[in-house]
Every structure is written in C-alpha cells, then in structure tokens.
Design a protein around this nucleic acid. Structure first.
Length: 283
DNA sequence: ATTTCATCCTGGAGGC
DNA sequence: TGCCTCCAGGATGAAA
C-alpha cells in the first residue's frame, strides 16, 4: 500500500507534471474524505487562479502547495492513488477530487476503499505547525526515517512492544508500513515479535541502516505494487519481485530456504524467516 | 502515558 | 456461475 517509497514516487511524478501549472477548478466529488476544514467549499475556491508552487512529501503524506500560500494535504490510506490525466479523459469510479489545471490536464485523487483523507489549508506554515496542521495531526508524526541517527533510533526502540508493531507507530518513526517494516526486519535479522527494547545495540544500529537502505532501494525501483498502487503516471512499482518475506508465507527464504512464516502482531500480518531472524529476549 | 482494539471501506479470493 | 463469508490494512479515537 502507499508507504513512504510509493508516496515519494508519486511526489516526484507530480513535480515533473504539474509544477507551475495554474489551477482552474477544484472539484470535490466525495465530501466524506475531506477532513478539514468544515467549510471546505469556500477554501477550494481560493485556490483557483493560483499556481502549483511545490509538491512535497512528509512520511506517507503528500503536500501540494499553491502560490497563494495555501496547500492541500493528501493521505492515501490503503488504496489511494493520485494520477495526472487529461481533463476530458473518462473519470473512473471512486474518483473523489479533481484539480483542473490550465494546461488541460488535471490531478485526480482516486481511492476505492476511502481510507484516504484530504485536508485543505488556507495558509501553510511549514516551520511552525499552526492550528490547521494540528488538525491534520502533522505534529504527532515521528521523524522521517532518513533523519534518524543510530543514537536516536536506540531511543526510539525503548518500548516493551513487539518491534514490528513499534515500527508501524507513525508517532515514533514516520513512513514505514507493513511491507517495509517486514523487509527491514528481515534484512536486519530480527524477529518481528522481539520486544523493541530487547534488541541488542549492534542489531538496533543494523536495523536503523536497513530501514534506510530498503526505503532507498524501494524508492529507486518505483515502490511496491501489490494490487492497487500506481504512480502519478498510472504505472506500477517494480519492488514486488524484490521482496524477501512480505506475502511469501510458506515459500523458501532466499537465504536459507526455510519456509517463511506468518505471525499476527497488533492485528497485522508479519512475515519472517524463523532461522534468519532470531528472537531476542530479556530486557 | 502508553498500548491495545474495534472501526472505517471495497474488492478480491476461496468455499460450496 | 453465483452467492456468501472472510480478509487485507493505515490511521484514529476510545478504552484498558
């Protein structure tokens, strides 16, 4: 699903396609996905006439900023897609927002499962989170994985919960989802059920490194398409075939040929190699 | 304060 | 083929 690498790829695609373009209309088809503000109808009108000044990513969220100082924040959820299409191209089912551009194209937010959310900001202050940012929970996000030093990471791991569950907690470290959490733990040789605080320092440092390297590789390969994910051009990610454990239950480990196992932690399936990923115990 | 858990939602998969 | 049930899971907000 759209985790950090997928959102980064969408952001890169959007930068090529829509930067500097003028907004001619902003249309909300499915109001249920708009989380902020309540009177979003007024806000959307204010963007008309602005140009798209910046496309940014924070964790798994996408930010499209306008020259008028406003911005739209998009959280893709499970099945959200952001596509650039010709404005007169057929509109598929579950298209919730359309941002018409001056060049005859448009940005479309498509999300069958509707776990995605959208916030409109009249003014975006990127330095000091204001009330609007707070409404979107941006202040509760943990650091970007690439900004986390080994020392900081060892602090993050001070918790009794399973490390897998902990890595998915966006308030601790922001951007990992189920796929890359499992893959990072495999690369670091750590059992997903290991209590976070029980991980020895050397393994913690290794996990800190593997998280970054897995994310970087996934970004380079266009992210992972299991089913729904598409980049801004509608293309699938190519990282699926590089997955070592995720959704490979029962199939042989690439390293030792032991069957990959599946375990439910915090209500999420975790995939791991029982031989390559020892369970560290004791606090 | 921290952590767990049900909930949102649709489409795809598997059973019969 | 068609119906039914189950399942996937990111983030949230309530509950423990």
């Amino acid at each position: 699903m759209p985790e950090l690498p997928e959102v980064e790829n969408i952001a890169q695609g959007l930068r090529h396609e829509i930067l500097k373009c003028g907004v001619t209309r902003m249309q909300v088809i499915q109001p249920a996905i708009i989380r902020f503000p309540r009177n979003w109808r007024k806000i959307t009108k204010r963007f008309v006439g602005d140009n798209i000044e910046q496309v940014a990513r924070r964790a798994k969220r996408l930010i499209i900023a306008f020259t008028g100082g406003g911005a739209i924040l998009i959280q893709l959820g499970m099945t959200g897609k952001v596509l650039v299409a010709d404005a007169d191209a057929p509109v598929v089912k579950h298209t919730h927002v359309r941002i018409r551009l001056s060049n005859g194209r448009e940005v479309r937010l498509i999300d069958p499962r509707r776990f995605g959310r959208v916030w409109f900001f009249a003014h975006l202050d990127s330095v000091h989170p204001d009330a609007e940012m707070e409404a979107a929970g941006m202040g509760r996000l943990g650091p970007e994985p690439f900004d986390v030093t080994p020392k900081k990471f060892r602090e993050i791991l001070q918790s009794s919960r399973a490390v897998k569950t902990h890595l998915l907690d966006q308030s601790r470290i922001a951007g990992l989802g189920n796929i890359y959490a499992d893959e990072s733990l495999f690369a670091a040789g750590i059992h997903p059920a290991t209590p976070a605080a029980a991980i020895p320092p050397a393994q913690a440092d290794k996990l800190c490194r593997t998280i970054k390297s897995i994310l970087r590789r996934a970004i380079r390969h266009g992210g992972t398409t299991l089913l729904d994910y598409r980049n801004a051009y509608g293309e699938m990610g190519r990282f699926l075939k590089m997955l070592k454990v995720y959704q490979r239950t029962g199939r042989p480990c690439h390293v030792c040929h032991t069957p990959i196992q599946r375990l439910v932690l915090g209500g999420r399936s975790s995939h791991y190699c029982p031989k390559c990923q020892p369970l560290f115990q004791k606090i």
